[in-house]
Design a protein around this nucleic acid. Sequence first.
DNA 1: TTGGCATACCTCAAACTACGAGGTATTCTC
DNA 2: GAGAATACCTCGTAGTTTGAGGTATGCCAA
Lengths: 120, 120
Amino acid sequence: MKQKSTNPDFLNGVPELVGLELLSQRPMYGYELVQAIRAGSGEVLTFGEGCIYPLLHKLEERGVLASRRIDVSGRSRVVYRVTPRGRKQQAQSLDHWSQIVTAVSRILQGGKDEHARIAS
Amino acid sequence: MKQKSTNPDFLNGVPELVGLELLSQRPMYGYELVQAIRAGSGEVLTFGEGCIYPLLHKLEERGVLASRRIDVSGRSRVVYRVTPRGRKQQAQSLDHWSQIVTAVSRILQGGKDEHARIAS
DNA sequence: TTGGCATACCTCAAACTACGAGGTATTCTC
DNA sequence: GAGAATACCTCGTAGTTTGAGGTATGCCAA
């Protein structure tokens, strides 16, 4: 009926937000981050590698992330960490996110207890 | 530095969500809805007419909305109301939205009180 | 009466993003 | 030895908001 394989609702920018958060908690490599998002969100946020890898590259170009290549048992991993500039960006993203969530909530709850809202 | 004029973060699908909510509270016409979203969100959500009008047309095509043309003082208005099918869709969208918000919150707060979360 | 602003509808190209499928290569497990 | 998991990557497609553009009417002040 309605199949929207791309640009799903409400997910725009979310990979960057949660990615920065998780990487600021602990440096990770791409493949690890993909699963960390999946697990950390209770299987709700399931961004594929085709979304995460380009994102990591873009954030590194911007100086938000920095990478370091390491070898573990003959396997190459690219570990990303958040830079000082990334911290600022993260704080801004977080603020932006909560602003939107607050604004949407305000509208969604505008229908209920209209009197209480006006009275207060 | 970073100019993203289109596809801003976190807003994907939000016009449909808040639009359905406001229209289910009270039928409105396009121009009215644009300002209702702006006002109802405290000037945070400011979707232009170039976003809302195509959205209304799309939702009407899907049978989510129904329109009625009225004339007020020589001015033509297209008033939209939510159909029964629209109610279902709205409930789903709402559920989807809260699911995402919950999942993101879980990750964002995953850094704090890690012990409490595991202990519970 | 003329100009400007708000109303009220509409369309369109541009920019961006997540999806999904594809590719390569190594290690681990049965 | 076959397959799954690991670990990196790229690319076309589809969908969405933006911002600017267009048309037309009504209202108000200079």
